[in-house]
């Protein structure tokens, strides 16, 4: 990879890490673990399933926090506080800047994933030792790790969409709102599409609109492998490969469009 992109990524990573959002996320991971330790035995009999779901959600929520409290304000601040000038007044093209920023955030998200995975795995292990009778029948550790990795991967796909929105809109508030809406849509578009397709009362135009939206927004629901991690429910053939390809192509397209729009934009 281009040396300049790596330098920008490193700068972006360092700047992000020092904002201490990551400490907040680590604290969140620990609080979730403590909550899991205290409350889950009261919830039900199927404790191991609850703890796995709970900790996977902590991973997701942590990644989301990084995006909403670190990446998004970082991007908005680049324009508002003109920090982008610092990088762009160097012999750096705007494309390199975008890629560097994206890879920097990717590194931060990865660190967050590792930090959140530690209490998650410990908690699951603890519960499995404490309640061996409730260990789900087809549970395997690598499945849990894969599921948490795909949560991180979904966060990356979502981040690429945030970049895209940011390159279109000027107002920071609008970008944040659009990002929240996109997240909600992204989580559910697949379910909504299935419901719509099965519906007999819905008009063709509405159906087409939903299908269109499912092509535009990132289908984050696809990356939810909870049932695979907890119950070992079989995934369709090559599902993970398809997910990787889908995510990678979505990110590439989003980032390329972002670069194209950002190149034409007045800063």
């Amino acid at each position: 990879m281009n040396n300049i992109i790596l330098r920008i990524a490193w700068l972006s990573f360092n700047e992000g890490i020092r904002q201490r959002t990551i400490y907040g996320v680590s604290a969140f991971g620990l609080i979730m673990a403590a909550a899991a330790y205290t409350f889950i035995p009261f919830i039900g009999f199927d404790v191991c399933r609850v703890v796995i779901d709970f900790m996977l959600m902590a991973v997701s929520a942590g990644c989301l926090m990084i995006i909403f409290f670190l990446c998004l304000p970082g991007l908005i601040g680049d324009i508002r506080d003109q920090t982008v000038y610092f990088v762009l007044s160097c012999p750096v093209s705007r494309e390199e800047y975008i890629l560097g920023r994206f890879f920097g955030f990717t590194m931060i998200l990865f660190i967050a994933l590792v930090i959140l995975d530690v209490p998650a795995l410990l908690m699951v292990k603890l519960y499995m030792m404490k309640y061996p009778g409730y260990v789900p029948l087809h549970f395997e550790w690598h499945k849990l790790l894969l599921a948490s990795f795909f949560r991180f991967y979904a966060a990356l796909v979502f981040l690429s969409f945030v970049f895209l929105v940011w390159s279109i809109m000027e107002s920071g508030v609008l970008v944040s709102i659009a990002a929240i809406i996109a997240y909600l849509i992204g989580q559910n578009i697949n379910t909504v599409k299935n419901i719509a397709m099965a519906s007999k009362t819905m008009g063709i135009a509405a159906k087409k609109l939903i299908v269109f939206a499912s092509w535009i927004f990132p289908n984050l629901g696809y990356f939810n492998l909870n049932t695979y991690a907890v119950y070992g429910v079989k995934l369709p053939e090559y599902y993970m490969v398809k997910l990787l390809v889908y995510g990678l192509s979505y990110m590439s397209i989003a980032i390329v469009i972002t670069m194209f729009l950002f190149k034409r934009r007045d800063l």
């Binding site: 700068l11 360092n14 700047e15 020092r18 904002q19 506080d81 003109q82 920090t83 000038y85 007044s89």
Partner: peptide
């Protein structure tokens, strides 16, 4: 070499 009006750079560095 560019020096901006508002001193702008990543403030945690």
């Amino acid at each position: 070499g560019y020096m901006s009006e508002k001193p702008c750079a990543y403030v945690n560095m």
